[in-house]
Amino acid sequence: MSVLKRVSPGWGILPIIIFLGAWEAVTRLNLIPGQILFPPFSVVVREFCNLIATGVLTESFLSSLIRVLIGFCSGSAVGLAIGILMGWKDVLNKAFSPIISLFYPIPALGWLPLLMLWIGINEALPIAMIFICSFFPICYSTASGIKNVDRNFIWAARTLGASDFKILATIVLPLALPTIFTGLRLEAGMSWRVIIAAEMVAIPTGIGALLMRAESLIRVDIIIVCLMVLSLMCLSFERLFIYLEHRLTRQWSSHARH
């Protein structure tokens, strides 16, 4: 058992290596007609290096990253704050819940036409979209996480003399962390999906815009490079929150990985 556990990380990489090898072999042997629409993996890697060297990819990536960070951080912060208030105070929950329920189901891209008219096509547009995309789900999951904390924990803290604010800060929030992190993790990945869509449609800079330019030049290799960067970023953001959750809750949470 311990031997299997030691080699297990290798098993995760192996399918990827096999996939890339098969990709390279299939394209090199011309098993798929239309070589131009399906470049070998080595060509994609070469183009990746080329785009880095010329600074095109770095510039586009940084543009997208900054938008994601600003939009996601601000949306999450406001979502967390309102979610905490809604979860903690029943009267606020009753006041905000109908509004949140009304706007929550609207897909982030559905806001695009309205935001284009309200904000115009500028840097604020993708940031506003990511803000909306992050705010509603994180607000919702935070409020649920707080409301679902067992009432007995609150009662126990109260009998021990803790004030309501102290109970919220030291008992309720820590116990709601697993649910809050689930929301943050999902929305962190979703932010990248939304930014690409916004940049493809409306903004001339960023990874999404690079994708659209590559499509117009029929540069499949650049498109694949962009998709791989996108995939890595979604994965990295999600992993970051899994790591943070693990660090903060591993000692006690049944949800945390061990």
């Binding site: 924990f153 126990a156 803290a157 009998t159 803790a162 000692q251």
Partner: peptide, 27 residues
Amino acid sequence: TQRRRVGYVFQDLVLFPHLDVVSNIAY
């Protein structure tokens, strides 16, 4: 409740799961 100075052991004990033994007692 906070000022009634009542020690209460609940049926499910409700130890705070994110605090160790010392922190639970010290809470």
